[in-house]
Amino acid sequence: MMEAQISELERDIIKEILNIGLARAADSFAAIAKDRVLLKVPDIKLIDVKELLGLVSEYEDSHIIIQSDIKGDFNGATLMLFSDDHVVRLSQVCLGMEEVPKGELSVMQESLLLEISNIITGALVTQMANILKASIYGSPPKAPKGYIADSLKDILVQHPLFQPLVFTVITRFTHNSRSVELPLLLFFDSKTFLHIIEIIRNFDLGKTNLMETD
């Protein structure tokens, strides 16, 4: 079982790398949200494809899902999950809309959600590339119109032994003391996961300061 191949220390290192990237993303997001933003990785788990698709489909009816693929040396994706309430709050805070109709998104609202996903995924990918010395990039975010499994097929189909490593990230932004949480799922295929572990195992932890990314 792949779970046995990751130690607590390695899990903590991966979490710390992601949290560094998310701290940078939070600063960029704060400029749009005009207030304090906190992003943290509370959970890392290895799950199989069925469980992943089940998890995503639970959100599908009640959330707008924005997907950004991670390509290059690593293969993965981020999914940001926006509920109606999130859309209303973000529209008020970032677009200055007072009355936000529920239902179909306006072009401006969809652009805003795509931009938020772009900022967060972009900052995360840049920091991971710096720390892990990997050549990776995020593809432009998209709002899949059909069933999300179809949209994820590239990642799933190319890797029949795919056991995704899933990170749940809670994005919390505060505006006028009101807090809004956005779930974000970040996942990599098993080949990428093993690659990341290999890079981490080759770190000289006595000399490596994760914050030194230049």
Rank of each mutant, 00 (worst) to 15 (best):
residue 137 Y to D: 08
residue 202 N to C: 04
residue 81 L to G: 10
residue 116 I to E: 07
residue 143 A to C: 09
residue 39 L to F: 13
residue 123 A to G: 07
residue 180 V to N: 04
residue 42 P to R: 12
residue 85 D to W: 10
residue 104 E to D: 13
residue 147 Y to D: 14
residue 63 H to T: 10
residue 198 E to P: 03
residue 149 A to S: 14
residue 201 R to M: 02
residue 189 D to W: 05
residue 33 A to N: 06
residue 95 L to I: 06
residue 175 H to D: 01
residue 58 E to P: 06
residue 110 E to N: 09
residue 15 K to P: 00
residue 102 K to T: 12
residue 61 D to G: 12
residue 198 E to A: 07
residue 19 N to M: 11
residue 149 A to H: 14
residue 38 L to A: 05
residue 23 A to S: 14
residue 76 G to H: 01
residue 177 S to G: 11
residue 163 Q to P: 00
residue 46 L to Q: 06
residue 192 T to N: 05
residue 120 I to P: 00
residue 22 L to G: 05
residue 44 I to G: 04
residue 53 L to T: 08
residue 193 F to H: 11
residue 98 E to N: 13
residue 161 L to R: 15
residue 66 I to T: 07
residue 104 E to I: 04
residue 133 K to I: 09
residue 134 A to G: 04
residue 147 Y to N: 14
residue 28 S to D: 10
residue 41 V to H: 00
residue 116 I to G: 04
residue 105 L to Q: 12
residue 108 M to F: 15
residue 201 R to D: 01
residue 202 N to F: 00
residue 208 T to H: 03
residue 68 S to T: 14
residue 25 A to T: 12
residue 87 V to Y: 01
residue 133 K to A: 06
residue 204 D to S: 06
residue 156 L to I: 10
residue 166 V to Q: 03
residue 76 G to A: 13
residue 203 F to Q: 00
residue 31 A to Y: 01
residue 190 S to C: 08
residue 34 K to D: 14
residue 146 G to E: 09
residue 30 A to N: 01
